[in-house]
Nucleic acid binder design. Sequence first.
DNA 1: TCCATGACCGACT
DNA 2: AAGTCGGCCATGG
Length: 114
Amino acid sequence: LRAESVATSVYHNIYKVVEKIPLGYVATYGQIAGLTGIRNPRQVGYALHALPADRNIPWHRVINHAGKISLSDAEGAATLQRILLESEGVQFDASGKINLNTYRWKPYPDAESG
DNA sequence: TCCATGACCGACT
DNA sequence: AAGTCGGCCATGG
């Protein structure tokens, strides 16, 4: 296999996990990395960055461990992410942070559907 | 191949 | 609670 194919396969796994984040909840990059068996959470960021627009993946439900949007707002991407989350009922505090104790997705090992 | 960068994280201060 | 630091490793020039 070429390195490209491997990376594509890893990305596919990442997308599979992100797809499971329920509406109204969020997950951190590290959380997704853990669920995918990846060591480097940055890879999750790369995967989402490379995400095709026609894939219907809830990429906006992935935030960093500080509870903040970790995307540059060039092209308004960060603003879009916040709008999408707010439209799903996720609330931000005055400093732009999400309370992870409230909104973090907590999947159970034996409950695939959530 | 070498080097810098990045949608990160955890520990420590 | 907020800032700093070292570690992580795929990607692109």
